[in-house]
Amino acid sequence: MNRVNLEVCVDTIEGAVIAEKNGADRIELCAALSEGGLTPSTGLMAAASELSIPVYAMIRPRSGNFSYSEAEKSLMLRDIQIAEDMGLNGIVIGAVCCERRLDLDFLSAALGSTRLPATLHRAFDTLTDVPAGVEDAVGLGFERILTSGHALRAELGLDILAETVRRAEGRLSVMAGAGITPENASMILCRSRVDELHASCSVQHPPFPSDELETRLGLVPTSGLKFTSAHSVQALRSAVENWFTTGV
Score class of each variant (00 low, 15 high):
residue 87 G to R: 00
residue 39 T to P: 06
residue 44 L to M: 14
residue 68 Y to D: 00
residue 61 P to S: 09
residue 53 I to H: 11
residue 80 I to N: 08
residue 67 S to L: 11
residue 33 L to V: 10
residue 77 L to F: 01
residue 68 Y to I: 01
residue 35 E to S: 15
residue 42 T to N: 13
residue 72 E to L: 01
residue 33 L to Q: 07
residue 66 F to V: 00
residue 63 S to A: 15
residue 45 M to S: 12
residue 76 M to N: 07
residue 89 N to V: 03
residue 38 L to W: 05
residue 40 P to M: 05
residue 38 L to N: 04
residue 50 E to R: 13
residue 32 A to E: 12
residue 80 I to M: 06
residue 89 N to E: 11
residue 63 S to R: 10
residue 32 A to I: 09
residue 82 I to S: 06
residue 42 T to H: 15
residue 51 L to D: 02
residue 64 G to M: 05
residue 39 T to R: 06
residue 76 M to E: 08
residue 68 Y to F: 06
residue 45 M to H: 05
residue 93 I to W: 00
residue 86 M to P: 06
residue 38 L to R: 10
residue 68 Y to S: 01
residue 42 T to A: 15
residue 83 A to N: 05
residue 92 V to Q: 07
residue 92 V to S: 10
residue 43 G to S: 13
residue 59 I to Q: 09
residue 36 G to T: 02
residue 84 E to L: 03
residue 91 I to Q: 04
residue 72 E to I: 02
residue 47 A to P: 07
residue 47 A to C: 12
residue 78 R to K: 14
residue 83 A to P: 00
residue 37 G to E: 04
residue 78 R to E: 13
residue 29 L to C: 02
residue 45 M to E: 08
residue 91 I to D: 05
residue 88 L to Y: 03
residue 88 L to K: 03
residue 29 L to R: 00
residue 70 E to S: 15
residue 38 L to Q: 03
residue 45 M to F: 01
residue 53 I to C: 11
residue 55 V to L: 11
residue 48 A to Y: 04
residue 55 V to E: 09
residue 81 Q to A: 15
residue 50 E to H: 14
residue 62 R to S: 08
residue 30 C to Y: 02
residue 50 E to P: 13
residue 79 D to C: 09
residue 50 E to T: 14
residue 39 T to A: 12
residue 61 P to L: 02
residue 69 S to N: 10
residue 69 S to I: 05
residue 71 A to H: 14
residue 42 T to I: 11
residue 58 M to R: 03
residue 44 L to E: 08
residue 89 N to L: 07
residue 86 M to H: 09
residue 40 P to Y: 03
residue 83 A to M: 01
residue 68 Y to L: 05
residue 85 D to R: 12
residue 78 R to H: 11
residue 62 R to F: 07
residue 84 E to F: 00
residue 77 L to I: 01
residue 61 P to M: 01
residue 65 N to S: 10
residue 81 Q to K: 13
residue 55 V to S: 06
residue 93 I to A: 02
residue 78 R to C: 13
residue 73 K to Y: 05
residue 34 S to K: 13
residue 49 S to R: 04
residue 75 L to V: 10
residue 47 A to V: 12
residue 36 G to P: 04
